[in-house]
């Protein structure tokens, strides 16, 4: 019985194009893993496979022993896998707080009929949801903006809100798709600290797709490298930095030869 996330011989093709080929890859509970690769290597496709947006053409994805590949995205989130999106996908018409509240729906003890009573139990649950949401927003410095419209936030705050929203689903595995994109160096430093902080505080496994090597090398315990949908290397940041195949993928064959 395996624990954590496991991808076994996972492939997907769109039309004739193989976007991911025979990918084997796993993340143990509490591990912080980086997924890197040149543009178009299939990193986001891997995210979409894990979160059920795409179904693999072949292979098996499991989480804590349960199959992921047959479930819909919401079912996978209920298993404890949450994600952020590379091209930010907040709920633009909702407030910052409501974006987080929306992500807590699946943890409510009562259904929609409960809201019609507006009785003590309902009000109590509403209160505790709001407290939990505010706590999360506080960690990411978004508490003061909680009533602002989500789309009115600046780019960095929108990325942070995406992480808060994903955390609100109480995941065991958090997938971050380029969380540092568009942030300045000091924001990136803060983000690295925050990722470590939430990982420890919520006992999370984290899979990080990121282009900024400083961020990836700075916080990941292990890194996998994709090129043309295949895994070409896997190891500690140190091993990856000196791996000839990785250098070739990023800089071209000439860099290795010359």
């Amino acid at each position: 019985m395996s624990t954590g996330l496991e991808l076994k011989d996972v492939s997907i093709s769109f039309g004739g194009l193989k976007a991911v080929t025979d990918l084997n890859f796993s993340i143990s509970p509490g591990e912080l893993v980086g997924l890197i690769g040149p543009n178009g290597a299939g990193k986001t496709t891997v995210f979409n496979l894990i979160t059920g947006v795409y179904t693999p053409t072949s292979g098996r994805i499991s989480f804590n022993g349960d199959s992921v590949s047959s479930r819909k995205p919401e079912g996978i989130t209920r298993m404890g896998i949450a994600r952020t999106f590379q091209n930010i996908r907040l709920f633009p018409s909702l407030s910052v707080l409501d974006n987080v509240r929306a992500a807590m729906v699946m943890h409510l003890k009562h259904g929609i009929l409960h809201s019609l009573t507006r009785g003590p139990a309902f009000l109590k649950e509403e209160g505790s949801v709001e407290d939990e949401a505010m706590d999360l927003l506080d960690i990411f410095g978004l508490k003061d903006a909680c009533h602002a419209n989500a789309k009115s936030l600046n780019y960095g705050d929108q990325r942070r809100l995406e992480i808060v929203r994903a955390l609100a689903t109480r995941p065991k595995l958090l997938l971050l798709d380029e969380p540092a994109a568009g942030m300045n160096p000091s924001e990136k430093d803060d983000l690295m600290k925050l990722i470590r902080f939430i990982k420890d505080r919520y006992n999370l496994a984290v899979l990080l797709v990121e282009h900024d090597m400083k961020v990836v090398m700075g916080i990941c315990e292990r890194i996998a490298v994709l090129e043309y949908g295949r895994k070409i290397a896997e190891g500690t940041p140190k091993e990856i930095q000196s791996h000839p195949k990785v250098i070739e993928a990023y800089l071209g064959a000439a860099a290795v030869v010359g």
Partner: peptide, 16 residues
């Protein structure tokens, strides 16, 4: 409104 704003994001947040 989450479903209205972004169905894919809503699904990814565990919303049925």
């Amino acid at each position: 409104p989450a479903v209205r704003d972004d169905e894919i994001a809503a699904g990814s947040m565990g919303i049925n």
